[in-house]
């Protein structure tokens, strides 16, 4: 009955803290910077030439690399994938490097899903319990006539809301700023999705053509899901470590390890069960070659969900049982 009031409390605390404004600022500044840098790069890249000619040149270049034979296996997989992707676009008479405001917005979700959005989720989640310990307010919070599990549930609800708003806000800013550089039209344009690599060769069987707006909704949904799962895991570190800095540090280390591991140890198969390996869900969906063979959207979402559920359960148990002494 009082639960909405509890959630309101947690939202109030998140929104009144400086970190909220910092997150908004980071998103606007970073997206602005990306748009600026990218549009500059494109001018140099295109120089008014026809995209078909350019795509063919690029394919010839990749074929040369492949013939050369000195490429590591992982790069060869990528090269075959890229070759297939470019080929397919040429056949359909679609510019593989086309850009518009909507396309930029979709691309942002792909790029932000494995580092930026999880990072912002961590910024909110790391503080949500440990902050109360550090300020000493936990002593009042937990001596009010509300069971601890309800207090934590209200925090979880507010956290999920904050992450949802962050992803939405990121998308809106990406579209707004991308639109300045590339125009706002193009939501209905078709895009190709579902490129896959099977073993060492390109597999065109999953390729579909879908409207960009549909694709964008899907991609943001996946990025949102990944960010929520990271938030749930960071909630556990916040509960257990009771220090915002320690919690944030732990989660950051995990994120960074997740981006480095596939490159340093691509043959270690078990890393596909780590949550960080599965954060680029949007990439797995729209079909960049996954870092570890065999990763799919379904598998990644299941692994992430399992981590999130386990972390949330552990957070509730620890939070409800542990004595508050310090």
């Amino acid at each position: 009955m009082r639960f909405p009031g509890l959630v309101e409390n947690e939202i109030l605390k998140i929104s009144k803290q400086r970190r909220f404004r910092v997150v908004v600022l980071i998103l606007v500044a970073l997206i602005g910077l990306i748009v600026f840098a990218q549009s500059r790069g494109r001018e140099r890249f295109r120089r008014g030439r026809d995209w078909r000619v350019q795509t063919q040149e690029r394919m010839a270049q990749i074929q040369n690399w492949l013939r050369d034979g000195r490429m590591p296996a992982a790069s060869q997989r990528w090269a075959r994938f890229e070759l297939g992707r470019l080929q397919y676009h040429l056949e359909r008479n679609m510019d593989p490097e086309a850009i518009s405001g909507p396309l930029f917005a979709r691309g942002f979700a792909n790029a932000a899903s494995y580092l930026l959005l999880p990072l912002l989720a961590i910024v909110f989640a790391s503080d949500i319990v440990s902050g109360e310990f550090q300020q000493g307010t936990i002593k009042i919070l937990l001596t009010r006539p509300v069971r601890r599990s309800r207090v934590l549930a209200s925090k979880l609800a507010a956290l999920l809301l904050a992450i949802t708003l962050t992803v939405l806000f990121g998308g809106i800013v990406a579209y707004a700023l991308g639109g300045i550089a590339y125009g706002y039209a193009g939501w209905d344009a078709p895009v190709l999705t579902g490129f896959r690599i099977a073993g060492q060769s390109f597999d065109p069987s999953g390729i579909r053509e879908i409207a960009l707006w549909k694709e964008t909704v899907l991609v943001y949904g996946l990025a949102w899901f990944a960010a929520l799962c990271v938030g749930a895991i960071a909630l556990l570190t916040s509960v257990v470590l009771r220090s915002t800095a320690a919690s944030m540090g732990t989660m950051l280390a995990a994120l960074i390890a997740g981006t480095i591991l596939p490159r340093l140890a691509p043959s270690w198969d078990a890393q596909k069960y780590l949550f960080v390996t599965n954060l680029p869900l949007p990439d797995y969906y729209s079909g960049s070659p996954p870092p570890i063979p065999g990763l799919t959207v379904g598998f990644g979402a299941a692994v992430l969900a399992a981590w999130a559920v386990a972390a949330t359960a552990a957070a509730f148990v620890v939070f409800a049982r542990r004595d508050v002494l310090a």
Partner: peptide
């Protein structure tokens, strides 16, 4: 109760603090 120091949310006003805790009652 007040356990040890009277730790309240410093970034909120006095009224916001009281409203916050009244929602738990």
């Amino acid at each position: 109760s007040i356990v040890e120091a009277p730790d309240l949310y410093k970034y909120l006003t006095g009224r916001e603090n009281l409203l916050h805790f009244s929602r738990m009652l």
